[in-house]
Measured scan of single mutants.
Amino acid sequence: TTYKLIANGKTLKGETTTEAVDAETAERVFKEYAKKNGVDGEWTYDDATKTFTVTE
């Protein structure tokens, strides 16, 4: 399944996707990606669109 991340960070803005077996796995991947890019904010997830959003 393809999951999408929308990053609304102070230093990183944009979108990326990952293939994962479930939302929990995708969330781990995206949180690691955000951490590597210095983004720390509020996370939301929309199951209907398989989209995570992080906003600083």
Score class of each variant (00 low, 15 high):
34 A>H: 02
39 V>N: 03
38 G>Y: 05
6 I>A: 05
49 T>A: 06
20 A>I: 02
35 K>H: 10
2 T>L: 14
47 D>Y: 08
45 Y>S: 01
30 F>W: 02
10 K>D: 08
17 T>L: 07
29 V>H: 13
35 K>E: 09
18 T>L: 14
25 T>G: 08
1 T>I: 14
21 V>C: 12
26 A>S: 02
54 V>I: 10
32 E>L: 10
33 Y>D: 02
21 V>Y: 12
32 E>R: 07
9 G>S: 13
30 F>A: 00
1 T>W: 13
42 E>Y: 13
46 D>F: 04
28 R>K: 12
3 Y>L: 01
9 G>T: 15
35 K>D: 06
11 T>W: 13
40 D>M: 12
31 K>F: 05
11 T>I: 12
41 G>D: 02
33 Y>C: 06
24 E>W: 11
18 T>D: 02
55 T>S: 09
17 T>Y: 15
12 L>Q: 07
30 F>Y: 02
13 K>I: 12
19 E>Q: 14
33 Y>P: 00
38 G>K: 07
20 A>W: 02
24 E>V: 11
37 N>V: 11
15 E>H: 09
28 R>W: 08
15 E>M: 12
43 W>Q: 01
34 A>K: 01
25 T>Q: 13
32 E>I: 09
1 T>K: 11
8 N>K: 13
43 W>Y: 02
12 L>F: 15
3 Y>P: 01
27 E>Y: 15
51 T>S: 04
43 W>K: 00
48 A>Q: 11
39 V>T: 04
3 Y>R: 01
11 T>M: 11
3 Y>C: 02
23 A>L: 10
15 E>I: 14
46 D>T: 05
36 K>Y: 09
47 D>N: 09
54 V>C: 06
43 W>D: 00
7 A>W: 15
16 T>G: 04
22 D>W: 03
8 N>T: 11
12 L>T: 07
51 T>N: 02
22 D>K: 03
35 K>R: 14
46 D>C: 08
44 T>G: 06
42 E>R: 10
44 T>V: 09
31 K>T: 04
18 T>M: 12
17 T>S: 10
43 W>V: 02
45 Y>H: 01
48 A>I: 11
31 K>A: 05
20 A>M: 03
16 T>A: 11
55 T>Y: 10
14 G>S: 12
24 E>L: 12
56 E>G: 06
26 A>C: 01
14 G>R: 13
16 T>D: 04
54 V>W: 03
7 A>P: 03
47 D>W: 08
15 E>N: 07
48 A>D: 11
40 D>I: 14
24 E>C: 13
32 E>V: 07
11 T>A: 10
10 K>G: 10
51 T>L: 04
10 K>T: 13
6 I>G: 02
31 K>C: 05
41 G>A: 03
24 E>P: 10
46 D>P: 00
8 N>P: 05
48 A>Y: 09
19 E>C: 14
10 K>C: 14
39 V>H: 05
22 D>A: 03
21 V>N: 12
22 D>P: 01
9 G>K: 04
5 L>F: 09
42 E>C: 12
36 K>C: 10
34 A>D: 00
56 E>M: 08
48 A>E: 13
32 E>Q: 10
26 A>F: 01
40 D>N: 13
10 K>Q: 11
47 D>E: 14
34 A>T: 06
23 A>Y: 14
22 D>V: 03
35 K>S: 10
43 W>F: 04
26 A>Y: 01
45 Y>G: 00
28 R>I: 09
54 V>D: 00
9 G>W: 07
46 D>G: 02
40 D>P: 03
48 A>R: 11
49 T>Q: 06
28 R>E: 06
55 T>L: 07
51 T>V: 06
2 T>R: 11
37 N>A: 11
48 A>N: 11
44 T>D: 08
28 R>S: 08
10 K>P: 13
31 K>W: 06
17 T>V: 09
22 D>Y: 03
2 T>S: 07
12 L>G: 08
18 T>A: 07
33 Y>A: 03
54 V>A: 02
8 N>L: 14
5 L>C: 08
44 T>H: 12
30 F>G: 00
10 K>L: 14
45 Y>C: 00
22 D>E: 04
41 G>I: 02
25 T>C: 07
16 T>K: 09
44 T>C: 09
6 I>N: 05
7 A>L: 15
34 A>C: 14
7 A>R: 05
49 T>P: 01
35 K>W: 11
4 K>G: 02
50 K>D: 02
41 G>Q: 02
44 T>K: 09
9 G>V: 12
25 T>Y: 06
36 K>D: 09
32 E>T: 08
6 I>S: 04
13 K>F: 12
34 A>Y: 04
38 G>T: 03
27 E>S: 08
8 N>W: 14
27 E>Q: 10
13 K>P: 09
21 V>S: 12
20 A>T: 05
20 A>V: 04
31 K>H: 08
